[in-house]
């Protein structure tokens, strides 16, 4: 009986003491958005294009780093406050604004509750009107490559590729089949056509078009299309 009593008291004390509030609330403001060009989302490779958020005033300075999803979206759970957003140099198939010294310029984000914020960038190219269809044992891709940056910093296309995969992650690193055509072999950039054979045994594929730009590491992609047959 007495033993039960002690146990009960111990339990009650533990419960009461544990109810003490934590020092900090968990972060609960969600920052979401897409990378866009004039409102059109820019698609990239999964887990390869990085961005960084900095918050000053708390001692050590280090980035809260993240990567964009395939569809160019990002999301972060943060505390309210003022953040500085950058995309590091050399990331993504687009140009991010730079300071005169060549460092990536910052976008100041003041977070007060959840916020949806699209990040506007200037891509070298855009993949327009991608149409991916199945025909026989092949997947056909038909699209237009539009040159956006035409000034001195313009870059040429190196090659275009049509990727297939079994999962929704489709890229140079994750694919079961790929056709790559060098830029020199393409005559009409308004109507580029690619074809790739479906690997045997696959009843559905996720397909995607990628554009490699000379001197730019990250490819530009079209949205992933799922095809079943």
């Amino acid at each position: 009986m007495k033993y039960c009593m002690y146990t009960a008291i111990a339990l009650i004390i533990t419960t009461i003491a544990s109810c003490k509030k934590d020092n900090y609330k968990a972060p609960n403001s969600k920052l979401t958005g897409h990378i866009t060009y004039k409102g059109d989302p820019i698609e990239v490779e999964y887990n390869q294009v990085q961005f960084e958020l900095y918050q000053y005033g708390f001692g050590k300075i280090g980035p809260v780093a993240g990567t964009f999803q395939q569809d160019g979206s990002y999301s972060m759970l943060l505390f309210n406050g003022e953040y500085k957003f950058i995309i590091p140099n050399g990331q993504g198939p687009f140009k991010w604004k730079q300071t005169a010294a060549g460092a990536p310029d910052t976008t100041v984000i003041t977070l007060n509750g959840s916020q949806d914020l699209n990040i506007e960038v200037t891509p070298y190219y855009m993949v327009r009107n991608p149409k991916i269809t199945a025909a026989g044992g092949n997947i056909l891709g038909n699209f237009k490559v539009e040159k956006i940056i035409t000034d001195a910093s313009a870059k040429d296309v190196e090659s275009v590729s049509l990727y297939l995969n079994k999962t929704q992650f489709v890229s140079g690193a994750d694919n079961t089949a790929v056709t790559t055509v060098d830029a020199a072999a393409i005559t009409d950039w308004n109507n580029v056509q690619l074809s790739v054979a479906v690997p045997s045994g696959q009843s559905s594929v996720y397909a995607r078009i990628g554009v490699k730009i000379v001197g730019v590491e990250d490819r530009l992609f079209s949205p992933v299309t799922k095809l079943s047959f």
Binding site: Q50, K60, I61, G62, P63, P88, N89, G90, Q91, E217
Partner: peptide, 17 residues
């Protein structure tokens, strides 16, 4: 490492990272 760069802001970051 971010810690190194935080302790010494004069250390510039590597390219393409």
């Amino acid at each position: 490492d971010d810690n190194v760069r935080s302790n010494n802001p004069k250390i510039v970051k590597q390219p393409n990272q």
